[in-house]
């Protein structure tokens, strides 16, 4: 039984990490808190749903379209909301994204109402396969594989490409980056777009097992903030490990202490780690 609980936790943790990777780009790398991150995920889920409902395309097939859509949403967020407030205090950008979050959530409600929607009959079902006596959910395995691939791709992008290195340079010292000819404006826009693309991929992978409604992503969003902080700001791999940790702690906490308190254990862990290692478990 404990093995099953831990496996459930690890797989759930991968899903959390999947959502957190995008946030770690804007918050962890660029130091801009995007409170609308959860709504990006929500719009990704709705995009997956409507493409499935109207065109009959499975979320896994339509993933590239959703990635492009949410990439554009990320770029637009930067150009329309963030760009103008970057020059003033950091709190202003934070509040601006909070406002955006409210706008997106209310637009969701306005366009698509509060009704629950489900993507059904998908390529990857909710069924499981058995491994060492444990049930492993196929949809979670695909999401976990997606989390690993996205983490790997983002890490490679940041470390091996000119644009990636420019993103890191801009995050370390914006003025110095400008002095060496980096168009920081473009870099910010790309980072927000990439963050959106990661969330778009996460949404496509999650659409087969997540009920879709305006409040669907509230807790995912909160957990993503916890995971980025736990993993260490700017550490994409740290976010993956922190996601796994949160998943396992939530599952074991729920099993041993009580399912009503499983998130209490997660947030207690977060508070303790922040006291001992304010830069996170894997932060530099």
């Amino acid at each position: 039984m404990i093995g099953q609980i831990i496996i459930n936790g690890l797989l759930n943790g991968c899903v959390y990490a999947l959502v957190a990777v995008g946030l770690s780009l804007t918050w962890g790398v660029m130091d801009i808190v995007n409170f609308a991150h959860g709504e990006f995920l929500l719009w990704g889920l709705y995009a997956s749903f409507w493409i499935w409902a109207l065109l009959g395309l499975d979320p896994l097939i339509s993933m590239p379209i959703v990635i492009v859509l949410i990439f554009l949403l990320g770029v637009l967020t930067y150009l329309v909301v963030i760009k103008r407030v970057l020059k003033v205090s950091g709190l202003t950008a934070l509040l601006a994204t909070f406002g955006l979050s409210m706008v997106l959530k209310n637009l969701t409600q306005f366009f698509w109402t509060a009704n629950y929607r489900n993507v059904t009959n998908t390529l990857v079902s909710n069924r499981s396969f058995k491994l060492l006596g444990m049930y492993i959910r196929q949809d979670y395995v695909v999401a976990a594989a997606g989390a690993l691939i996205i983490t790997l791709l983002v890490t490679l992008f940041l470390n091996r490409t000119k644009t990636g290195i420019a993103i890191k340079a801009t995050s370390i010292n914006k003025s110095a980056a400008q002095l060496v000819g980096i168009d920081t404006n473009r870099i910010y826009a790309i980072t927000f777009g990439l963050s959106g693309a990661c969330v778009g991929a996460a949404a496509a992978l999650m659409a087969s097992f997540t009920p879709i409604y305006p409040e669907a992503c509230a807790l995912y969003s909160t957990l993503a903030f916890v995971i980025v902080a736990l993993g260490g700001f700017g550490n994409i791999k740290g976010a993956l490990f922190a996601g796994l940790l949160v998943g396992v702690v939530e599952a074991l906490g729920g099993y041993f202490i009580g399912t009503s308190f499983k998130y209490l254990v997660v947030f207690l862990l977060y508070l303790v780690v922040m006291q001992i290692r304010p830069r996170g478990l894997f932060g530099w």
Binding site: Y16, P211, Y213, A251, S260
Partner: peptide, 30 residues
């Protein structure tokens, strides 16, 4: 359980482990 939870795998595993022949649910749609 809390309604805001992202999944109920642990809860379902506990119920399965109990060996219940019939399960009651006081739940909303999500």
């Amino acid at each position: 359980y809390e309604s805001t939870a992202t999944s109920f795998d642990t809860e379902a595993a506990q119920i399965k482990e109990s060996g219940a022949d019939a399960v009651f649910q006081a739940s909303y749609i999500g």
